[in-house]
């Protein structure tokens, strides 16, 4: 009887283990094929010349040499950073302000405001880029050029000039994401216990002090999350410049992902595209590490206090 019980338990344990492995295996199999292998193969490919059809030829570090001698490659890195900063910072500040406004007591229609502000996020990036391509049209009938013409400004060629390209693309990013981040901040603010504000009020803190001493410190994890995702998103910017600049992907607005896409699928130069992907990967790792470092330090200094 006892042995029977024991063996029953044993088979049950075996069964559990078997189903456990079975149930999690699809993820690992699929990830191995479509995630891990491509990642490793990217490194391999970056040492070869390959047009996608004829056999690959080993070229050593030649691909890296080619992209590092290409001024457009550096432009793509610089553009990505500039547009990342131009799109992200205003977005986070405005989102914080909107969240404060929505979180302040006794606001009527707050759900309506929330829905309206969130609306752009539901729109696809492609649609956003197409709409803003017309708003930022080069001709004088483009909306922004028309408004500027009222101030006697000559029509700006938005998708060809250095800063206008970046302003237009950052505006698209800003418009689509600001409401999303507002909602995230709002969720964070609403999870702050009311007692903290009560206590602050009893101690005589003004609204400004409440924001500075209660809301912002309590919001830090959410803020970190938003900065983190916005940074990663900015580094991967592709669709907006791709639609806005058209096939040519001009140097003024090309991003890192757009550069590697164009090399691969525009010029059939898969080797240099892989090399660009490796550099992009390295940059993402460095930025992520910096992000984590800052987050950790901020977390620690809070504990010390």
């Amino acid at each position: 009887m006892a042995t029977k019980e024991k063996s029953r338990k044993l088979t049950e344990r075996k069964q559990n283990a078997l189903s456990g492995y079975l149930f999690v295996s699809p993820f690992f199999i699929l990830f191995a094929i479509f995630g891990l292998f491509p990642m490793v193969f990217s490194f391999y490919l970056s040492f070869f010349r390959w047009d996608g059809l004829t056999p690959m030829t080993y070229v050593g570090l030649k691909n890296f040499e080619i992209i590092f001698n290409d001024s457009i490659f550096f432009s793509s890195i610089w553009n990505t950073f500039l547009m990342g900063i131009m799109g992200t910072f205003p977005q986070i500040i405005v989102a914080l302000l909107l969240a404060f406004a929505l979180n302040s007591a006794l606001i009527r229609f707050s759900n309506t405001f929330r829905t309206l502000v969130f609306l752009p996020y539901i729109t696809s990036v492609v649609a956003v880029a197409i709409i803003f391509s017309l708003i930022f049209n080069n001709q004088s009938f483009g909306l922004v050029n028309y408004i500027l013409s009222m101030f006697d400004v000559e029509p700006i060629r938005w998708n060809q000039e250095y800063w206008p390209v970046k302003i237009a693309i950052s505006t698209m990013v800003f418009w689509r994401w600001v409401g999303y981040n507002t909602i995230i901040f709002l969720a964070g603010m609403q999870s702050i216990p009311k007692e903290l504000y009560e206590a602050a009020k009893i101690d005589g803190a003004s609204i400004g002090q409440q924001i500075r001493l209660v809301t912002l410190p309590m919001l830090k994890p959410v803020l970190m999350f938003v900065v983190f995702t916005a940074t990663i998103g900015a580094l991967q910017l592709f669709t907006e410049p791709f639609i806005f600049l058209g096939r040519g992907l001009r140097e003024e607005g090309i991003t890192m992902v757009a550069y590697l896409w164009r090399d691969a699928f525009g010029y059939n130069s898969f080797g240099t595209a892989s090399a660009a992907a490796i550099v992009l990967f390295a940059i993402i790792i460095v930025i992520t590490a910096i992000n984590l470092l800052i987050t950790n330090r901020v977390g620690r200094s809070k504990k010390v206090q």
Partner: peptide
């Protein structure tokens, strides 16, 4: 832990080999 780790990999990195597959 491995599952969580895979979230850190940027999907564009493998774009070209994925296309090849």
């Amino acid at each position: 832990a491995l599952v969580l780790l895979t979230m850190m990999v940027p999907p564009q990195l493998g774009l070209i080999p994925q296309y090849y597959i």
